[in-house]
Simulated assay, not measured.
Amino acid sequence: MPTGVAIRDPRQQLFDAAECVLLRDGPSALTSRAVTTEAGCAKGVLHRHFADFDGFLAELVLDRIGRIDGQAAALRDSAGTGTVTDNLTGALTDLFGTVAVAIVGLVTSRDNLRTRLREAIPTGVPILTEATAMIASYLTAERELGRVATDADVDTLAPTLIGAAHLLFADRKGAPPESEAVRKVVATVISGAV
């Protein structure tokens, strides 16, 4: 991009570019040069808005975590409609069909990034922790409606669902799992609870 041309929302443009690089080439290819090249801007733009590259990556992860809030609200709102299995299948497919799996790989591959994120998220793996809370909140709502057994351990079911779904989607290079494969895992995990 020529010098002096204004970028409407440089932070978002850089985040979107980083997401493209991450999804296409993986965490090891994510460099400041790769991000700014993908964004079509000078490298200085990134450093004008972020103290350093690890700071940029931490903000990227936090931005993508923020998107889970909307997904969590939509999932909670679906309580009492459809089937529990279908609602969870849709939510897990939406969650892991996006950049979430790549973000987990990014966080686990960069020590400095994990250190930065510990300031904002002291426990758990970013993205997976928030996703687990989303599923637990939904299962609690369904339990209150009587569609999940009153003795169901949602605090165990939620991370089990997240872990199982994450494994289904973890192959970055292969085709994403079919909806029926996700549904089968969900149905198996919650079979004793619905």
Score class of each variant (00 low, 15 high):
residue 4 G to L: 09
residue 7 I to T: 15
residue 8 R to Y: 06
residue 9 D to S: 11
residue 11 R to S: 14
residue 12 Q to G: 13
residue 12 Q to H: 14
residue 12 Q to E: 14
residue 14 L to F: 13
residue 16 D to Q: 09
residue 17 A to T: 11
residue 17 A to G: 09
residue 18 A to K: 07
residue 18 A to V: 05
residue 19 E to G: 06
residue 23 L to S: 10
residue 24 R to V: 06
residue 25 D to S: 11
residue 26 G to Y: 07
residue 28 S to G: 04
residue 30 L to S: 06
residue 31 T to Y: 10
residue 31 T to Q: 03
residue 33 R to E: 15
residue 34 A to K: 03
residue 34 A to P: 02
residue 35 V to E: 13
residue 37 T to V: 00
residue 37 T to S: 11
residue 39 A to V: 02
residue 41 C to M: 05
residue 42 A to D: 14
residue 44 G to L: 00
residue 46 L to N: 03
residue 48 R to T: 14
residue 48 R to Y: 13
residue 49 H to G: 07
residue 50 F to M: 00
residue 52 D to N: 15
residue 53 F to D: 08
residue 56 F to D: 07
residue 60 L to E: 10
residue 60 L to R: 08
residue 61 V to C: 12
residue 61 V to A: 07
residue 65 I to P: 04
residue 66 G to N: 08
residue 66 G to H: 13
residue 66 G to W: 11
residue 67 R to I: 02
residue 67 R to P: 09
residue 68 I to A: 14
residue 69 D to M: 00
residue 72 A to L: 00
residue 74 A to M: 01
residue 75 L to I: 05
residue 76 R to S: 10
residue 82 G to L: 03
residue 84 V to F: 02
residue 88 L to S: 13
residue 89 T to I: 01
residue 90 G to A: 05
residue 91 A to Y: 09
residue 93 T to H: 13
residue 93 T to Y: 11
residue 95 L to C: 12
residue 95 L to K: 00
residue 97 G to T: 01
residue 98 T to C: 01
residue 99 V to C: 15
residue 100 A to H: 13
residue 101 V to G: 14
residue 103 I to F: 06
residue 104 V to W: 08
residue 104 V to H: 10
residue 108 T to L: 05
residue 108 T to D: 10
residue 111 D to Y: 03
residue 117 L to V: 08
residue 119 E to S: 04
residue 119 E to K: 08
residue 120 A to S: 03
residue 120 A to L: 00
residue 121 I to A: 08
residue 121 I to L: 12
residue 122 P to L: 00
residue 124 G to V: 01
residue 127 I to H: 07
residue 127 I to P: 04
residue 128 L to F: 03
residue 130 E to N: 05
residue 132 T to V: 02
residue 134 M to L: 05
residue 135 I to N: 12
residue 136 A to N: 05
residue 136 A to P: 06
residue 138 Y to T: 09
residue 138 Y to D: 06
residue 139 L to M: 07
residue 140 T to H: 13
residue 141 A to T: 12
residue 144 E to D: 15
residue 153 D to N: 13
residue 154 V to T: 15
residue 155 D to G: 08
residue 155 D to N: 12
residue 157 L to G: 11
residue 159 P to D: 10
residue 160 T to R: 07
residue 161 L to S: 08
residue 161 L to W: 11
residue 162 I to G: 09
residue 163 G to C: 03
residue 163 G to I: 02
residue 164 A to R: 03
residue 164 A to N: 02
residue 164 A to D: 07
residue 165 A to F: 06
residue 167 L to A: 14
residue 168 L to S: 08
residue 168 L to C: 06
residue 170 A to F: 13
residue 170 A to E: 07
residue 171 D to P: 10
residue 171 D to L: 06
residue 172 R to Y: 02
residue 172 R to Q: 06
residue 173 K to Q: 15
residue 178 E to R: 12
residue 179 S to W: 01
residue 180 E to K: 11
residue 181 A to L: 09
residue 181 A to G: 07
residue 182 V to F: 04
residue 185 V to A: 05
residue 187 A to W: 00
residue 187 A to K: 02
residue 188 T to D: 13
residue 189 V to M: 04
residue 189 V to I: 15
residue 191 S to E: 01
residue 194 V to K: 07
